[in-house]
Simulated scan of single mutants.
Amino acid sequence: MSISPNGINIDEALEELAACTIWYPAYQEAMRLITKSIDSTRDRKDPSSAMLIGPTGVGKTRLCLKLEKQLGPFQTVLRADCEKTIRPCVYVELPESATIKSLSMVMAQILGGNVSDYQSITALETLIIERLITMEVKLVILDDFHHVAQKGLSKTKSSLCNWIIILLNKSGIPFLISGSPTAEATINTVQELSDRFPYRARLQSMPMAEEADTPALLGVLAALQKETIRLGKLKNYIHLTDPTPYKAIYLATQGNFRRLSNLLHDSFRIALLRGDYSLTINDFAEAADDLAFCCSPNHFRMTPNQLNSTLKGQTKRI
């Protein structure tokens, strides 16, 4: 356990900051559409699935995990005639080496099935469908779906699509597929499957305020700053939404949430270790020196004129 000179538990503070999720408009809209897919499935008795599409680092996995938590934990309940296991959500993160067979085995294991390498995909499908229904699953999340979608030839992708169609049609339970645009392109190759995914949420890196009707990045930075002030009991600090630090943060992260999270974590850690209740621009500069995505050039060591010139040059390139 690391304790700062002023008595703050550094590990706990950083962990709490990392767990903080800011529900900016695009996040709220994504959650609304995914929730609507669950409600529509329940009301229509027909699976109306959702997709969460966007590049790496924009918060797709974070949203999937929040959704899994929101739907509720695995539990055992006593019914009038039996003891029943309920699993509201099945979350599967697909590795790069995933195949239809390995994916089927992982899902079956999550659902409590006894699985062996000798079982056929058809046998695993039957087991999965049975468990999805009996365990009253509300949503199946396949995260990083592009790891499977971008592999192999069109025949492999067709088999993957058919596998999902079978699970949807026979279980009646909606899926959430999360991944890059490759995932959406794969789903769209089969019209029957594409029609099963009417709700599609898209996440992108947060733009500069000047580039958007809604200044999402400003709102996120303001909310995160409140957390750092609370957790670090800060008395002196730079305002992250002021023009100079705001521009430096945008240029360093390009509005990518994962990069922003790494940068803020390292900067805040430096400040906590110093233990003087402050957070400075130098903390960000020192953190950026060690982060490959923003160390060259280090925008936190630039003057306001240099930042403006860099932004102007970037706008011209776009």
Rank of each mutant, 00 (worst) to 15 (best):
I8D: 01
I8N: 05
N9V: 08
D11L: 15
E12M: 12
E15C: 12
E15R: 15
E16S: 14
L17D: 09
A19I: 12
C20V: 13
T21V: 14
T21M: 08
W23G: 05
P25Q: 11
A26H: 06
A26K: 04
M31L: 11
M31R: 05
R32K: 15
I38E: 01
I38C: 05
S40D: 15
S40Q: 15
S40F: 11
D43A: 15
P47H: 05
S48L: 14
S49H: 04
P55H: 04
V58W: 02
G59V: 03
C64T: 09
Q70W: 12
Q70N: 14
G72Q: 11
F74S: 10
V77F: 07
C89M: 12
A98K: 02
T99D: 09
I100L: 12
I100D: 08
I100H: 05
M105L: 11
A108C: 10
A108R: 03
A108I: 06
A108E: 02
I110R: 04
G113L: 04
V115R: 04
V115P: 03
S116T: 15
Y118L: 11
Y118A: 13
I121L: 08
T122A: 14
L124M: 07
L127Q: 06
L127F: 09
I128D: 00
L132S: 01
T134E: 13
K138N: 13
L139S: 04
D143E: 08
D144V: 05
F145K: 01
H147E: 11
A149V: 06
G152N: 12
K155W: 13
K157I: 06
I164H: 00
I166E: 04
I166S: 07
L167E: 04
L168N: 07
I173D: 05
P174E: 01
S178I: 04
S178H: 06
P181W: 05
T182N: 10
T182Q: 07
A183Y: 01
A185R: 04
T186M: 01
T189R: 00
Q191L: 12
S194W: 06
P198Q: 10
Y199T: 06
Y199D: 05
A201V: 01
M208I: 09
A209M: 07
E210Y: 09
D213K: 12
V220F: 00
L224H: 12
T228A: 09
T228K: 03
L231T: 08
K233D: 09
K235Q: 14
N236R: 13
N236P: 08
L240D: 00
P243K: 03
P245H: 01
Y246T: 03
Y250H: 07
L251W: 04
Q254I: 09
G255P: 02
F257R: 02
L263M: 10
D266Y: 15
D266Q: 14
R269W: 07
R269E: 10
A271Y: 02
L272A: 05
G275Y: 01
D276P: 03
S278E: 07
S278D: 10
S278R: 08
L279T: 00
L279C: 02
L279K: 01
I281N: 03
F284I: 07
L291E: 01
H299R: 07
F300G: 00
R301M: 10
M302H: 14
P304H: 11
N305I: 13
Q306F: 12
T310L: 09
T310E: 13
I318P: 08
I318N: 13
